[in-house]
Amino acid sequence: MLADRVVLKGMFYGVGAGLCWGVIFLGPKLAPELSGAQFAILRFLCYGLICAVLLTPRWRIAYAALRREDWISLFWLSLIGNLLYYTLVGSGVQLAGVATTSLIVGLIPVLVALAGRNDDQAVPLRRLAPSLCCAGAGAALISLHTLQTGAAGQSAHIGPGLLCAFGALLTWSWFAVSNARRLNRMPGVSAYDWALLAGVMTGAQSLLLAIPLLGPEITHHDPQKWLSHLMVAGGVALLASLLGGALWNQASRLLPLALSGQVLVIETLAALLLGFVWEGHWPDAMQWSAIVLLVTGVVWCLRCHQARPQSG
């Protein structure tokens, strides 16, 4: 019973993180004048500044709890899981569209579940297979639908956009696995402090890239346009990076890796909903079928974990 409560609490945090992260796919659409890399840098500059302010009173405690290998992991997790991932997402959204990118990235749960199949408390792969197939079928169905209906007007961009989306899939799958395992090896560091430290690290990395990537664009847009870009990037940073990151770190500590990967389907659904609202139409029958498959995969996986035998 206690284990079930822990799983449900972890699911609550994971679903919250997924809902917050849904906005990351819409952000680049709201700033089409910026490339994926430029919008990523602007977002993480805002995120780094927010995290630096919040971390200031806790800096000594957080700093004392980290070892050298933790700082090295923090550097790579921030660079690959934040900057590189979101650069690829932003480029994919602008080149191939919100739906295509979000649904390819939506395959992350499949890769994460496969990566965690040998971890403690993980459900055997044969029991996870139906839910994985369900989620994978939903993602494949709606991806095929999006490609069929959208490729005609984007023939020059669809290829690079798909490469960016698949790159984002690989980078964040690696991040989800590595970040969860790093957190479990650092019992003295809170999930909240780790999220703030990652924000400061990513902000510092973005600052180094800001001049060569954003500098030439400063004179191309008027101050009002830059203010608009800054507000969009700041909103994404606050909601997705800060709140979503903190919720995800809590979920990573409470859920088996395979189940935490399944929860990421919520991010895909949130991104789809925002994308459909932004484009001003609702899903058709084929899209609804794919969404039902994705949700069924999540619920099915949750039941598998709740029903697993408990050790004394």
Results as ranks from 00 to 15, higher is better:
Asn179Pro: 07
Val295Phe: 03
Gly215Leu: 12
Leu170Asp: 03
Gly312Leu: 14
Thr101Pro: 04
Gln154Arg: 14
Leu147Thr: 05
Gln38Lys: 08
Leu238Ser: 12
Tyr192Lys: 10
Trp282Ala: 14
Ala290Phe: 02
Leu132Phe: 08
Gly36Asp: 02
Pro130His: 09
Ala180Thr: 02
Phe175Trp: 04
Asp120His: 12
Gly188Thr: 13
Ala122Ser: 14
Val112Gly: 05
Arg67Pro: 03
Ala290Asn: 03
Glu267Asn: 14
Tyr63Ile: 08
Val298Gln: 04
Leu209Met: 12
Gly18Ser: 11
Gly116Trp: 05
Ser289Ile: 14
Leu66Met: 15
Ser241Asp: 00
Leu213Trp: 14
Thr100Val: 15
Leu107Ser: 10
Gln154Asn: 14
Ile291Asp: 06
Gly167Ile: 07
Ala156Lys: 14
Gly22Gln: 07
Ala233Phe: 03
Leu66Asn: 08
Gly92Asn: 09
Gly167Val: 07
Ile291Trp: 08
Leu242Trp: 06
Met186Pro: 02
Ser190Gln: 01
Ala140His: 09
Gly244Asn: 07
Thr56Trp: 13
Phe276Trp: 13
Phe175Glu: 06
Trp248Ala: 03
Leu34Asp: 09
Leu170Lys: 04
Lys9Val: 08
Gly161Asp: 00
Ala270Val: 01
Pro124Asp: 10
Ala137Gly: 04
Ala237Lys: 03
Ala307Gly: 14
Leu141Thr: 10
Leu114Met: 12
Tyr47Pro: 05
Thr219Cys: 12
Phe12Lys: 01
Gly136Leu: 09
Ala195Phe: 00
Ala198His: 06
Met231Trp: 11
Val292Asn: 07
Glu267Gln: 14
Ala152Asn: 13
Ala204Lys: 01
Ser155Leu: 13
Ala271His: 01
Tyr47Ala: 14
Ala122Gly: 10
Gly22Cys: 08
Ile218Asp: 09
Trp59Thr: 02
Ala251Thr: 07
Gly138Gln: 01
Tyr86Asn: 11
Tyr85Phe: 15
Trp288Leu: 14
Ala195Lys: 06
Cys301Met: 13
Tyr192Gly: 02
Leu214Arg: 04
Trp174Pro: 00
Pro32Gly: 08
His145Lys: 09
Phe25Trp: 03
Arg253Asn: 03
Arg68Met: 10
Cys133His: 01
Ile218Asn: 11
Ala40Ser: 15
Arg303Phe: 13
Ala139Ser: 15
Val93Ala: 02
Leu273Tyr: 12
Gln121Lys: 12
Leu26Gly: 00
Ala195Glu: 04
Leu114Asp: 05
Trp282His: 13
Leu88Phe: 11
Leu83Trp: 00
Pro309Thr: 08
Trp71Asp: 05
Ala195Met: 08
Leu147His: 10
Gly36Phe: 00
Ile108Thr: 15
Pro32His: 06
